[in-house]
Structures are given as C-alpha cells and as structure tokens.
Nucleic acid binder design. Structure first.
Lengths: 244, 244
DNA sequence: CGCCTATTTGATCTGATTCAAACAATGTGG
DNA sequence: CCACATTGTTTGAATCAGATCAAATAGGCG
C-alpha cells in the first residue's frame, strides 16, 4: 500500500514521473537516519550545510525572526520533503528549519546527492522542479498574507495541507494529520494566535472543518475551497494520485 | 564598462562564476528581441509557455489577483532577469508577468534553453540557483508582509532594489532607476497606495531617501538599512561587484 | 495531583484601510 | 501652445480588521 512506500519517492512521484532506475537510485541514497525530538533546529540561519535533511516522519517548518522578535513561518514540511534542498546551490542558509513534532530525519551528504544527480541528470530537473513548487507555495502564501482576510487564509492553508498530505498517502476519510498549534498557524499566516482561534471558531461553526487531536477533518470540501479561494494549480501535482 | 555588457551575463555573474565558454554560449543564445509597451502581460496565469522572457531593458512584475480583485505583486524584475525561467520546469503558469514600463524583451525558445543546459550542465546549476534566489526574495517579502510594519517594509524594499540594480550596473551615485507607482509598491508590500504615500513622507522627512522622476536616491544607507532591518545575505550575491 | 502548554474569552487599542476630494504632473489632440 | 483628459500623488476623516493585553479554562502528561 502507498503509505508504506519511501516518502521521498512518493513525494516526487506526486509531481513527476520516475523511471524504475531513478526510483532505485533514490532508494539507494546513503543517508543517516535519526530521530529528532520536537522543536529542534535542524539547520539554522547562517549555517553552511554539507548535507540535506529528508523528512521521513513528522512535521517541520522553515522560519525566520524579525529584529523585534516576531516569527514568520515560510513553509510547513511533511514526510517526503527535503526542506533544505536549496543548500545544494546556496552556500549560506538565510533562514532556519526546525521540527514541530518528533521527527524521523534522513541526513544526506551533499556529495551523495551531487553524485546521484550526475548519474541521473533527469533527477536534477525533478529536484529543481520541486524547489520551484516550493516557491509557488511561497507566492500563494504571499498573496494570502498580503491581500486576503484571516478566514480565507486559514481555509486556504487547510486546503493546501490536505492536498499535499494526500499526495504522500497521509489522508484517510477526509482526515489528515495536522499537529500544529494555533500560534504556529498564526506565524505562518501573519496572524496572532488569538485571531487564529477566533477564525477557527467561524470555520467550525459553518461546519467546514473539524480540527481535534492534531488531525484535521474536512467536512465540506467545496465550501472550504470556496471560502479559501483555493485553486490547486499552484501545487503542480500534475500526476494526481488515483483514488484508493 | 559594466553597463554595456549583456544584462543576462551581468546578472548571472552577480550570483556565480562563469567560464568564458559559458559566457559565450549565453551570448549566442538565439532570441527574438522585441519592444513591449508598458502594462502589457508577457505571460498569463494559465498559459503553457514554450519560451522564456529575458528582460533586457525596463521593469516588469509578476502578480496574481484574489477573487475579490486585489492584486499581489510577487516580484519586481529588472534587466538581466528571466522572470519566467520556472516555465522550463512547470508546464502551467500559476501567475502572470507584465511590463511596468516600456521594455525590451528577449524571447527564447525552451528548446534553445534546454540545448544550452545540455551542452553546459553547470549552467543548469546557475539557473537553478537563480530561481532559488528568487524564492529567497519571496521569503523575505513574506516576512515583511506578515510581520513587519509599513515603514520597515518600504525601507527594506528600497534597500533590496538598490542592491539588485547595483549588481547589474544600474546604480550611480546612490541613485537607481525605480519607475514604479506608489500603488505598485503597495501591491508588492500588501499596503494601500494611501499608506505607502504616508510612509514615504516619513522616510523623506528623516532624510533617508529621495524618490523623484522615477529614480530613487539613498541619502543615508546605514539609516535606511536599519529602519528596513536589511541584511543582504538572502540575495546570495556572493560575487560582489567591485566599486567603480 | 499538579505542572506546563495550548486554547478560549473579553476588553481595549491601533496600524492600516477605505472613501472622498484636491492637487500635480504628464501627455494628447486640436 | 493651450485646453483637456488621464494618471499619479497628496491630504483629511471615518472606519475596521486584526493586534494586544489580561485572565480564565482546558488538555496532556510525568
């Protein structure tokens, strides 16, 4: 079944086609797997990493603080993501990456990744494409933070997380794991935790979603997508997963 | 002199090293050069381009509208930029690209670009790197829109534009071309044109900048950078241009 | 049980929006 | 070269979405 496959392969197959050889090469990637507890920085602003992190289990986030100590979260990461793939091309990290939950992380030396891409040039396109989708999500968040109201932003985030988690086999019965605090959602959407809370109450009152026990259940996809102005084109999941 | 060099080469040299062969290959890229008047879409959301745009002269912007008709500008583009390089990897555009001023644009077929990257694999890294810097700028804007106040945001944008324009040889005497309207700045920073105006008056009153005749002059770089919380690391211009 | 963290509620405040109008600059056609 | 239209900037007043502050409540867990 899908959920037992390698998260990286699942993730990449959700955005492109892989040949059996490419899949095998990905599975053969040497990596050091490690359990990391929650709220630990995996990479920090200013670091010059010599390896990339592959998230195998758990949730992580990329973020940065303003000088006045306000945090902006740039991205939530889920199993299969390589949140710091950019360190292959940019020497110095301009932001940090931290776990939000206990995680299982695979650390892969840049050298091994470069060798993989040299042996399988098409995989360069795949990783490049992945970082471009990452950027497309940034743009969509920017649109939300800059120009949409709180309710739309929260609904949009929920739609996005469902689509992304579905793509890696983590959705069951319109329910996905979403082990975030309301403060974390606020830091991602440019809102205060208090206002996130009030917005959630609206979405619940309209029977659009439930969010309990770190799991999000969409009760009314059409309604939620409408409130969130959600159009999944920007996720570029051109290879849609078939229904289970 | 620097300003007479090919804008694309100048731009890429500001973020990486190029061999003479690579430089020549870039100069030999077949492109159709065309003058485009202001406020024209070069690529539209939903398009499936078969070519990329190289901005040779003028300013352009990428943007998207919310369902309620509010615009968010994601990026300002200057000579040397290839704002839709992402279309090499993502079939469908999830946002639009338009000129903000009269522009000279080079249109390059995807086929020619792919052939270039095939012949010069290191250039793939360079273009990938460029799109990653693009994304780094998105993150910095997100941080501003989500967590910084109006004055900080405007000051930060000014610092960024100066750095980027300097890198392609368009700065003279602390002055750079900045042919944007206040409304466009507002759409980029998630502010209303009215509030941008009031914020500009503050920055002027503090003798940090002048902005007249479509040119921005920084009167006090230290002060402006401080107000804008500006740290240029995120631009990843590791190859700094020498002083003229 | 008691501690710590997260959620929820209420009251107040404010940065920024909106609306409306005046003003300035630029360009156009007669 | 002027009259006029158009677009961009500036000012003022009213309003609001969301922040902040403070405190209460609810979970989770050793």
């Amino acid at each position: 079944m899908a959920s037992s496959a390698h998260p990286l392969v699942l993730k990449l197959e959700s955005i492109t086609d892989l040949t059996p050889e490419e899949t095998q090469a990905l599975l053969d990637l040497p990596m050091r797997v490690q359990d990391v507890r929650e709220d630990q920085d995996l990479v920090r602003e200013g670091d010059r990493p010599s390896q990339c992190c592959l998230l195998l289990e758990g949730f992580a986030a990329r973020y940065k603080f303003t000088n006045t100590g306000k945090r902006q979260i740039f991205a939530f990461h889920t199993p299969g993501d390589m949140p710091d793939a950019l360190s292959l091309q940019l020497k110095t990290m301009d932001h940090s990456l931290a776990t939000l939950t206990p995680c299982k992380v695979g650390f892969i030396q840049h050298g091994h990744l470069r060798e993989l891409l040299r042996q399988h040039p098409r995989l360069t396109d795949v990783f490049w494409r992945d970082t471009l989708i990452d950027a497309a999500i940034f743009r969509e968040w920017m649109l939300g933070i800059g120009r949409r109201d709180a309710k739309t932003r929260v609904a949009h985030l929920f739609c996005e997380m469902v689509c992304r988690l579905r793509a890696v086999g983590l959705e069951k019965n319109n329910t996905v794991p979403l082990p975030l605090t309301q403060a974390e959602v606020g830091d991602a959407l440019g809102l205060s935790n208090v206002h996130v809370n009030r917005t959630l109450q609206e979405l619940r009152a309209e029977n659009l979603v439930e969010w309990e026990n770190k799991a999000l259940t969409v009760l009314d996809w059409r309604g939620l997508a409408q409130v969130g102005e959600f159009d999944e084109t920007y996720l570029h999941q051109d290879r849609k997963h078939l229904a289970a």
